[in-house]
Design a protein around this nucleic acid. Structure first.
Lengths: 192, 192
DNA sequence: CGTCTATTTGAATGTACTCAAAAGCGGTGG
DNA sequence: CCACCGCTTTTGAGTACATTCAAATAGACG
């Protein structure tokens, strides 16, 4: 149970006293996930934000035809979760699971709210986190609306060069919004 | 120059003293926009978050074929801006303009940073704002990845019933990610 | 080794786009 | 007040990008 990666992540944006660190750590929970294990399933109420300490997680939705659509990948050092479900504390529409054996550090939404009151610096930290997330989603939407699949793939490779090597092609296809068959054809120039 | 709508918006999440209100107001700028006038153009560095007091604004990107892709509509009471450009203070990829004569209240990023230090409650306010925005983008992405155009249109009508009446069909088409021609055909069942 | 899943390949299909042109609509100026 | 201009919406034909379904092949893992 090592919080170094998380504390380094926090330290990027705010500076904590030892006491504040200790309090923060006292609120944390750790969960080990086996490959394919769920952190969250559709219909669950998201417990709170989750930080990936090791492994890779992803969030995705399932459409009525049973196809998965990846919303986010989270390698070590990233946060993941179903924000809508977390905010409203309502059953969510996203699944979160592990693509490989992983370790996650997470905090109850109720504890986070306490933390915001006790150590207001964390308001800043999570504000910055959310703002960065907004920027990422905005740019993803721009890509999705204005680029053909092949360029969305190129953009993904450029933005996440280390991820691309670890992910099954199927997962990347889902993230860029095409079927695995079509991505395969694109990469092998079988698209005529 | 009436800040009531903005103050009511702020009051939804945090409670300010009269002094804090006065300080906040002292940092605000007002801009009137004529229909079609830009608040921000591609390549501009976003000044800071903008609150729509009256009218309707939209943000959009322009692809290399010259087609517009609407990222967001902002009726009165909503915030809008190019988050990536604002955070990094780098030239952005989004345009923001007025779909009708509008009035916008905005704050310089540098003043906002000062505000966060002077009145930390605003960290909370903008954290909540950004979190809601993340939730909205997540759900929009889910829709985009997993629903056919006709259902994205239905979803838009359901989610923004009052907006749909005010917007030119062309703008809605762009938001849901189809050409104006195709939306017209969908609505008139000319799609065979 | 066998099983399960991922990837590839092919053919047929479908959803949505492009281009072009006509029709509708709203604002503005003479 | 109405005619005209510019922009939006509609309609049609042809096309392209991406999907579906099916089946073969390849990889990964116990």
């Amino acid at each position: 149970m090592n919080h170094d990666l998380l504390l380094a992540n926090v330290a990027k944006h705010i500076t904590l006293t030892d006491e504040e660190k200790a309090y923060f750590i006292s609120l944390l929970n750790v969960k080990k996930l086996r490959k394919k294990q769920y952190l969250n399933q559709e219909g669950d109420i998201a417990k709170g934000p989750s930080f990936v300490n090791s492994g890779i997680l992803r969030s995705y939705s399932l459409d009525k035809n049973g196809y998965e659509h990846v919303i986010q990948f989270a390698p070590p050092g990233w946060w993941i979760g179903d924000m809508a479900s977390m905010i409203k504390q309502e059953p969510g529409k996203l699944y979160v699971d592990a693509l490989e054996d992983s370790e996650v550090i997470w905090i109850w939404k109720a504890d986070l709210d306490k933390l915001f009151v006790e150590v207001p610096k964390f308001e800043r930290f999570f504000r910055i986190l959310a703002e960065n997330s907004v920027a990422t989603y905005q740019s993803r939407l721009v890509n999705y609306l204005s680029l053909p699949a092949i360029e969305r793939y190129a953009g993904f490779c450029k933005q996440y060069p280390s991820l691309i090597q670890k992910l099954p092609q199927k997962q990347v296809a889902s993230y860029i919004g095409v079927t695995p068959e079509f991505l395969s054809k694109m990469l092998n120039n079988t698209v005529i």
